[in-house]
Design a protein around this nucleic acid. Structure first.
Lengths: 184, 184, 184, 184
DNA sequence: AATGAATGAGTTTTCATTCAT
DNA sequence: TATGAATGAAAACTCATTCAT
C-alpha cells in the first residue's frame, strides 16, 4: 500500500516533469538546459536524470501520447472518409495540427543534434507506416516520408509571425497533390 | 598609394574570411564555432571580430551577393517569362536553389537565436518586395512573405536524406498555387 | 519471541549487507557508490545509511572478522613456530595473504580520504601490537608499524599485472630482514 | 619579434601552470579538480585545457623532466659504480628518492583511473628498459617491472607518518636481493 | 591591424546524503 | 524500520569574447 502510494506520487511527479519539459521545449526550444527544465518543474536536476537518463528519453516521453493518437487516427480516417484523398488530407491536417500546437516539436524533429536521433527514429518508425497506407491509397505523387518531412518543415515557426499560416500552406501543398482535371 | 594597397589587402583578407565562413557554414552549420572559421581562414579569432563584430554581421556578409542576385532576378523574370505564373515559379525555383545549395542557410533563417535576428530582417527586407511583385502579378493564393517562408522551410534539411527532394516538394507546392480549370 | 525473531532478521539483513559490500569493494574498489552496494544487497540506500552511518563504519564492519582472526594468529604462531624469525615470516605471510585476497583493501588502507580515517586507526590499533610482539622477538630491523605499512603497500595492485607477484616481493623483503651470516 | 615575445610569455605561463599543478598534485593528489589547479595558478580553467587537453597530458608534463633525468642516470651508474649490485642499489635509491620527494606521484602511478593510463605507459616505457639493464647486470631475483612496481608502492604515503621511512624499507628490500654468502 | 592566449560563464552529468512515505 | 525519490554540490569540458602583445 505504502508502495503504491509512493508509486502514485512518483508518477504524478513524472507527469509534472513532462509538463514542465513540454513548456520549456515550447518556450526555449528542445535544446533548453536540463537545469532550466528542473527549475521550471521545481525539482533538482538529479530528478530529471533519474526519470529520463538521456535528453531523448525526455523528449520521446513528452510527445509519446500525441504521436500515438496520431498514429491511431490513420486507419480510422481511411475507413471513415469519403475517399482516399480526403482521408489523406484529413490525416495530414491532424498531423500538422499536432505539430503546430506543439510549437518546438517541428524544430526538434529537424535538429541534427545526436541527442535527438532516437526521437527521429521513434517518430518515423511509428508514423511513416501509417502515412504510407494513406499515401498509397490516394496514389500521391509524394511518398510518405517525403510528405511528412515537408509538412513537418512547413510547421516550423508556425505562430511566430502572423503573416505565415502553416495550415493554409499545408492546404496549398495538398492541393498540389490533388488529382487534376484533364488539360484540354 | 600605400594606403590604397593596404585597403586592397584588407579587402582581400575580408574576402578570404567570407569564403572560409561560407565553407564552414555549409559543412558545420551557421552555429559553427568562431574559432573554427578563423582556423579555416588562417587568421586569428580577433580578426574575425574586428571585421564582423557579431555573428549576424558575418552571416549577412556571406550571403549578401547571392541575395542581391536573387533580388535582381525578380523584375527580369517578370519581363522575360511567358506569363506571371511562369515568372513566379521560375523565381521560386531560383530562390529554392539558392537555399538548397547554401546548406545551412535555411536553418539559419528559421533559427530563433537572437544572433540571427538582423539576418532575418535584412533577408526579408530585400526579397519580400521582389517576391511581392511576382505574387501579385500571378494572383497567388499565398502572399510573398508566406510563400517565401514556406519555401525556406521546405529547404531545411535538403540533401540530408535521399527520400526527401526539396525541389520536388516545392514543385508540388507551386502546383497547388496554379490557376485551376473551372469545376463544372 | 517476535522481538528476538525480528532481531535475528535484522542481523541476517546486516550480514547480507556486509557480504554485498565486501563483494562490491573487491570488484569496484572501496570507493564504490553506495547505491551500487545497496543494489547488490537488494536493499535501499537508506538501509545502508541506517546500519552504517559513514562509509568507514561499513568498511570496518566488512573487515572486522578477518582482522580479528589475523590478530589472534600472532601469539599462536609465536608459540608454535620453530623460531621467532619463522613466526614473523609466517604471520607476515598471513597478513599479506589477507590483503592480497581482499583486493581493494590495501588501497583503502593507504587512501588519504577522510572517510577511511577510522578504518586506519582501528586496523592499526588492533594489529600493530600483535606485530610488535613478533618483531621484537625476531629482533627485526624494521618496527611493527613500518613493516606492516610496507607489506600493506606492497599488496597494492596485487593481481593487476602478471609481472608483479606481491607474495614474492614480500618474501624478498623478509629475506632482507633475515639475520645474516658474518661477512668474512 | 612580437611573436617570440608572446611565445616566451606563453612558455613562462605554461611553466607556472606546471608548478601549480605539481604543488596541487602533492597537496591534494593527482585527482585534484582542474579548477583548483587553475585557481592555484591564478588562471582560468580554459587556460589549463588549452595547454593540456587531458589530465594525463598535464601529469606527464609535470613529471617529464624528472623521469628523463632518472632514465639517463641508469647507464651512467652502471659504468661508474664499483659493481652491478651497487649500480642497481644506487639507481633504485635515485628512483625512490624521486618518488618520495614527488609526494603524490607514487599514488598516481598506482591509480587505476583511465585518466592515468597514458602516464603509466609513458613512465614504464621510459624506465623499465633502463632498470632492466641494471637488473640483468646484477642478476637480481626480481625483474625490472616487478622491482620498480615494488619500490613505487613502498613510496606511497612516504612522509605521511614518521614511523614509516620509505628509504629504509627500500634498503631492506634491496638487502633481500643481495647476493648471499654460502650457507655452510 | 592582427594575433591567439586567457577568461569564465554555462552546460552536462554523477553521486553522497536526506527525508517523506 | 525500510525504501528509494529527491536534492544539489561537485567536477569536467566548451566556446564566445576580450585584450595584451
Amino acid at each position: 500500500m505504502a508502495e503504491s502510494r509512493k508509486r502514485a506520487d512518483a508518477r504524478r511527479n513524472e507527469q509534472s516533469l513532462l509538463d514542465a519539459a513540454a513548456a520549456a521545449f515550447v518556450s526555449d526550444g528542445v535544446q533548453v538546459p536540463v537545469r532550466d527544465i528542473a527549475a521550471k518543474a521545481g525539482v533538482g536536476v538529479g530528478t530529471i536524470y533519474r526519470h529520463f537518463p538521456t535528453r531523448a528519453d525526455l523528449i520521446v516521453a513528452v510527445y509519446r501520447h500525441q504521436v500515438e493518437a496520431c498514429a491511431e487516427a490513420g486507419p480510422r480516417l481511411l475507413r471513415e472518409s469519403p475517399g482516399p484523398y480526403a482521408a489523406l488530407t484529413s490525416w495530414i491536417d491532424l498531423f500538422a495540427d499536432f505539430l503546430i500546437t506543439k510549437h518546438g516539436l517541428a524544430e526538434a524533429l529537424q535538429s541534427e543534434d545526436a541527442a535527438f536521433q532516437s526521437l527521429h527514429t521513434w517518430f518515423l518508425d511509428r508514423l511513416v507506416p501509417v502515412c504510407d497506407q494513406l499515401v498509397r491509397a490516394a496514389d500521391s505523387r509524394l511518398g510518405a516520408f517525403e510528405l511528412m518531412y515537408a509538412v513537418g518543415n512547413l510547421c516550423i515557426g508556425a505562430g511566430r509571425d502572423d503573416r505565415y499560416d502553416a495550415r493554409r500552406v499545408v492546404g496549398v501543398l495538398l492541393d498540389g497533390l490533388r488529382p487534376r482535371c484533364a488539360t484540354p
